[in-house]
Simulated assay, not measured.
Amino acid sequence: MKKKNTRSTYSRKPKKKTSSFSTIFWYFIFGFGVILVLSLAYHYRSGFAYYFGFKSRNTNKTDVFSEARNLKILEKHDGKVIGLDVSEYQGKIRWSYVDTIEKKYPLQFVLIRATVGNDRKDLQFKQNWIGAKANKMIRGAYHYYRPNENSLEQAQLFIKTVTLKKGDLPPVLDIEKLPKNQSIERLKIGLRRWLNAVELHYGVRPIIYTGEKYYDDFLKEEFSDYLFWIANYSFYREEIQEDWLFWQFTEKAVVPGIDYKVDVDIYNGDLEQLQYITVE
């Protein structure tokens, strides 16, 4: 007698075919990424050439794309004045070594943080203020404004801390944060009070520092009677706007004499024009 076949008589399920659309999509993404990288490499070719030619031994301290972008911007603004801004976050600066960026572009001015809010002095302000002057740089001082603290107390702290002399830049108000427990209108009133008190004391109109979005959203119209120092690190911006006095274009620069990354700025003019706006 023949044994019955105990194997399943069910047919196997057909294998699913890989979606051709999915494959094409991922090839497209990969191809787009390659094109983007190659485009950036070509756009910043001079920066990459310099970086790999002269800085290959220092790659642990720098970001390749940031460095290439910085060089591209410096090349585009050849003839304008280049400077930097510093605070205690840069540690103890060896000012006699602070001379150029990329061994080519002279650093001719520096903006130094002096005070924060209504109760704190920058730990390195005094040393930086003296060191910059000894290094024959045009110097300026700025105050980091805290929106939720009394504006006149903040102004008085700055006034007590900073003595401006002939040839120094006008005082700077640094506003970056939105208030937590007050309206935007109250914030603007406080900013006006600080600006007016400082201008009355020094006899020169202050400059306002902020980010580009903050400037566009909150300050551009109501504070149009002031000059602005704008921060924007976007890869899509490579030139200073006509209505900006200073442009802080990077926070990742390497400068001789400074052990930490530092902000670098462009003044929208030449050295003679920069000297013209200094305190008399």
Rank of each mutant, 00 (worst) to 15 (best):
residue 165 K to F: 04
residue 149 E to G: 00
residue 176 E to H: 13
residue 103 K to G: 05
residue 116 V to P: 06
residue 100 T to D: 14
residue 108 Q to P: 03
residue 87 S to H: 11
residue 118 N to G: 05
residue 68 A to I: 09
residue 153 E to T: 00
residue 99 D to L: 13
residue 130 I to Y: 01
residue 90 Q to F: 03
residue 184 I to K: 08
residue 102 E to M: 15
residue 130 I to N: 08
residue 159 I to Y: 03
residue 72 K to P: 00
residue 75 E to K: 15
residue 107 L to M: 08
residue 118 N to E: 11
residue 173 L to Q: 07
residue 175 I to E: 00
residue 142 Y to A: 04
residue 73 I to M: 11
residue 149 E to H: 10
residue 126 K to A: 15
residue 83 G to V: 11
residue 97 Y to P: 01
residue 104 K to P: 02
residue 150 N to K: 02
residue 138 I to A: 07
residue 157 L to V: 01
residue 150 N to V: 00
residue 109 F to I: 15
residue 136 K to S: 12
residue 61 K to D: 09
residue 97 Y to D: 14
residue 71 L to A: 05
residue 93 I to Y: 08
residue 172 V to S: 02
residue 133 K to M: 09
residue 160 K to Y: 10
residue 114 A to G: 05
residue 115 T to W: 00
residue 58 N to G: 13
residue 146 R to L: 01
residue 149 E to M: 02
residue 149 E to S: 01
residue 160 K to N: 12
residue 75 E to I: 14
residue 136 K to Q: 12
residue 119 D to K: 02
residue 108 Q to C: 00
residue 146 R to P: 00
residue 66 S to A: 04
residue 88 E to S: 14
residue 115 T to D: 02
residue 62 T to W: 07
residue 104 K to C: 11
residue 91 G to Q: 15
residue 103 K to Q: 04
residue 166 K to G: 01
residue 96 S to D: 05
residue 149 E to A: 00
residue 170 P to E: 09
residue 74 L to V: 13
residue 158 F to W: 02
residue 137 M to R: 12
residue 171 P to A: 10
residue 139 R to V: 04
residue 124 Q to N: 15
residue 124 Q to E: 15
residue 140 G to T: 15
residue 152 L to C: 01
residue 73 I to L: 09
residue 94 R to M: 00
residue 80 K to Y: 13
residue 134 A to I: 06
residue 78 D to I: 12
residue 92 K to S: 10
residue 145 Y to E: 03
residue 88 E to T: 11
residue 69 R to W: 04
residue 116 V to A: 09
residue 127 Q to F: 07
residue 157 L to Y: 00
residue 80 K to W: 11
residue 138 I to R: 05
residue 77 H to W: 06
residue 182 Q to S: 15
residue 143 H to E: 03
residue 96 S to I: 07
residue 165 K to Y: 12
residue 82 I to H: 12
residue 127 Q to I: 03
residue 172 V to Y: 08
residue 181 N to H: 10
residue 60 N to V: 13
residue 155 A to T: 00
residue 72 K to S: 14
residue 171 P to F: 03
residue 111 L to N: 03
residue 154 Q to W: 00
residue 168 D to E: 05
residue 116 V to K: 07
residue 173 L to A: 03
residue 113 R to D: 11
residue 148 N to W: 07
residue 68 A to M: 13
residue 101 I to M: 10
residue 128 N to Q: 07
residue 106 P to W: 10
residue 167 G to Q: 09
residue 107 L to D: 09
residue 120 R to Q: 09
residue 105 Y to P: 11
residue 155 A to I: 02
residue 117 G to S: 12
residue 106 P to V: 13
residue 124 Q to I: 13
residue 146 R to A: 03
residue 157 L to K: 00
residue 181 N to L: 11
residue 118 N to H: 06
residue 145 Y to V: 10
residue 82 I to V: 14
residue 97 Y to A: 01
residue 153 E to H: 00
residue 114 A to K: 11
residue 166 K to M: 07
residue 58 N to E: 14
residue 156 Q to Y: 01
residue 59 T to K: 08
residue 78 D to H: 12
